[in-house]
Simulated assay, not measured.
Amino acid sequence: MYDVVLLTLGSGRDAPGGGCGSGGACCGGTDEAAAAQPAERCETPRVPVLACADALTARDARVETVTAHSDAEIDEVLARLDGPTRPDGLTWPDPDSKTRLVVATATDGQLRAVLRRLVRRYAPPPSRRPADLPDNRTVPDLPPIGVLPLDPARNGTARDLAAQLGLPRDPTAVADAVLDGTVRRLDLLRNDGSSVTLDGALLGAADDAGRPLHWRARVEVDGRILSHGEDPIMACVIGNAGGYARLDDVTLLADPDPTDGEVEVAVAVPVVTRSVLGRRRVRLEVRRARGRAVAVVPRDEKVPFLDDGVEGELNRKRSWWTEPGAWAVWTA
């Protein structure tokens, strides 16, 4: 018999974010996802959460639904996944845990908020790196998560991470996957801003008419330079999965794969050419590279970005690196 915690990120009077998404979907009020949350409040569990809880209970699982209004409340849930005390004193996940976690998500940013807290909980400090940690990782195998999309009716049209990964969206199917399914391990991007990326980051912005604004930055992937900092960049994508693979009708990422142990990076730069008749033409050149890590050094004061759908501004060097197979989902 399994203990299953159904975790929803909720709004609250003291939470630094809003409550309800489009269609009434309860959204998170945690630090990581706050920027993506609308301001309307909603405390009643969504129908998919209740349906999943009923399906789990019907399978004899002991179910608890938790709405977390802060990072501290997320941490209280994640502590249930801890393993036995280690001789080195590190907090480590229990690979044989009988507690399973389902995260109800209205946005990818909410799922990222939970993964960010998992990384903060289980990543050992560099000075205490244990011998049983893989050489290409800074975190152990994180506990697998069941993902419950709060808009299951969007199946077939959604472009969220659950849809990209082909995860079940129906609450009963999610319950079955958590109890009887298999674990699919996925790459995780960490960055030196103390956050994580599950899908990808899109750097750049557009004006009010939708035209891309040019900006400049040095972009380097494992020593390969995609831009030295002088080119007018229209967009830069740092991809783990394929959510930002295309921008309008332009293919940026050629073959994003969240299981290949690499980050794929693309930089779109306008290039001026002239025809044989001397006419000036502008074509878009997409430069791509794959590797373990990418560094972006902005030359402009601020570069807007979306990271797993959460808005931000880049005003200093930022590096992302791959943690192969670090996190996992329950799938059918």
Rank of each mutant, 00 (worst) to 15 (best):
25 A>C: 14
103 V>M: 01
141 D>N: 08
253 L>Y: 01
331 T>A: 12
279 R>G: 09
315 N>W: 15
22 S>R: 13
264 E>P: 01
306 L>D: 12
299 R>C: 13
237 V>Y: 03
158 A>G: 05
301 E>K: 10
150 L>K: 09
18 G>E: 07
256 P>D: 07
110 Q>Y: 02
44 T>E: 15
97 S>G: 10
110 Q>G: 13
17 G>K: 00
191 N>L: 10
49 V>E: 15
28 G>Y: 09
330 W>C: 10
182 T>R: 14
6 L>K: 01
28 G>I: 03
50 L>W: 07
265 V>E: 05
202 L>N: 08
31 D>N: 13
51 A>H: 09
275 S>C: 02
129 R>T: 10
224 R>Y: 03
120 R>Q: 15
74 I>V: 15
175 A>S: 07
246 R>L: 11
181 G>L: 11
291 G>V: 04
43 E>V: 12
104 A>W: 13
10 G>F: 12
294 V>P: 02
46 R>G: 15
290 R>S: 11
112 R>W: 07
133 L>Q: 02
201 A>Q: 08
48 P>T: 04
196 V>T: 11
62 R>D: 11
149 P>W: 06
33 A>M: 15
131 A>V: 04
207 D>K: 08
258 P>S: 00
132 D>I: 06
198 L>I: 09
148 L>C: 06
188 L>E: 05
121 R>M: 15
178 V>E: 03
58 A>V: 03
83 G>L: 07
133 L>T: 05
209 A>C: 10
86 R>D: 01
119 V>P: 04
178 V>N: 04
47 V>G: 12
288 R>T: 05
48 P>N: 07
208 D>Q: 12
100 R>A: 01
139 V>Q: 06
17 G>N: 04
315 N>G: 15
188 L>Q: 07
291 G>R: 05
229 G>V: 01
282 V>Y: 00
299 R>N: 14
280 R>P: 05
119 V>H: 07
291 G>F: 03
164 Q>G: 14
147 V>W: 12
14 D>N: 15
245 A>N: 00
308 D>T: 01
176 D>P: 00
155 N>C: 14
171 P>Q: 11
3 D>V: 10
199 D>G: 00
113 A>K: 08
124 P>W: 03
51 A>N: 04
167 L>C: 02
207 D>E: 09
245 A>V: 05
55 A>D: 00
41 R>F: 12
132 D>N: 15
253 L>D: 04
288 R>K: 03
209 A>E: 14
34 A>R: 11
152 P>F: 07
126 P>A: 13
324 P>S: 02
166 G>W: 08
294 V>W: 07
102 V>G: 00
136 N>S: 14
82 D>P: 03
130 P>K: 04
93 P>Q: 06
152 P>V: 05
50 L>S: 10
146 G>N: 02
81 L>T: 06
119 V>A: 08
181 G>P: 01
252 L>R: 03
268 A>T: 08
229 G>T: 00
219 V>R: 04
56 L>N: 01
279 R>V: 09
310 V>N: 08
135 D>I: 05
37 Q>E: 11
287 R>P: 06
305 F>Q: 09
167 L>K: 10
192 D>K: 05
307 D>C: 13
97 S>P: 02
34 A>G: 03
222 D>S: 01
90 L>H: 04
217 A>L: 06
194 S>E: 14
156 G>P: 04
120 R>H: 10
99 T>P: 11
290 R>D: 09
153 A>T: 10
1 M>F: 03
107 T>Q: 14
